[in-house]
């Protein structure tokens, strides 16, 4: 079983993606999706030797919901800044956020979340994966931004992955 499905989440995602792409759940689409779901993880397994350890996958759904809500709020904030703030009053800042997440998958998820949410953008990461370089569009108080990212997103991701 472990040999046939080295990455079960990847297999399930591929099957779901194929069914949605075909926009039908006929036997042909399911069969082809299942075939791709078996073959692609087997072919790409050498590039991805470690297994993504997700302890509580269900909490990920709540997390995605939270992020989607934040995306809407952040877009409105950024739009307001672009429209109504004079250019010389926008205080941009580089912020270094120290992170402590176990796996590369969790770090990538946090980086993506930061880019999509209020006025911040992941610009780079440290060579050892212990800190993220963030650019904030309008941050009069950089420490508050750092604290909010740690408490709002990193703590939740830690609960998902450990």
């Amino acid at each position: 079983m472990q040999k046939l499905f080295p990455h079960p989440y990847l297999s399930a995602t591929l099957l779901l993606t194929w069914v949605l792409l075909m926009n039908s759940i006929g036997p042909g689409a399911v069969l082809m999706g299942g075939f791709l779901g078996v073959v692609i993880p087997l072919l790409t397994a050498p590039y991805w030797p470690e297994h993504a350890a997700m302890k509580h996958p269900l909490r990920l759904v709540a997390y995605i919901g939270l992020v989607l809500g934040d995306v809407v709020v952040s877009s409105i904030q950024v739009a307001a800044i672009i429209l109504f703030k004079p250019v010389d009053q926008i205080q941009s800042a580089w912020i270094c956020v120290p992170i402590d997440l176990p796996s590369p998958e969790a770090q990538a998820l946090l980086a993506g979340t930061i880019t999509m949410t209020p006025g911040t953008l992941t610009a780079d990461f440290a060579a050892d994966g212990k800190s993220l370089l963030i650019h904030s569009l309008h941050a009069p108080d950089p420490d508050a931004v750092c604290a909010e990212i740690k408490s709002r997103y990193e703590a939740r991701l830690k609960r998902i992955f450990t």
Partner: peptide, 28 residues
């Protein structure tokens, strides 16, 4: 966005404004 930010850092950004990392490791 990450790749665009990286190419900005590599070409145009004033590097003295970028803060150091939390640990000793440098930015990638």
């Amino acid at each position: 966005a990450l790749y665009l930010a990286k190419s900005h850092i590599a070409t145009t950004v004033d590097r003295s404004k970028i803060p150091p990392t939390a640990t000793k490791a440098p930015w990638a």
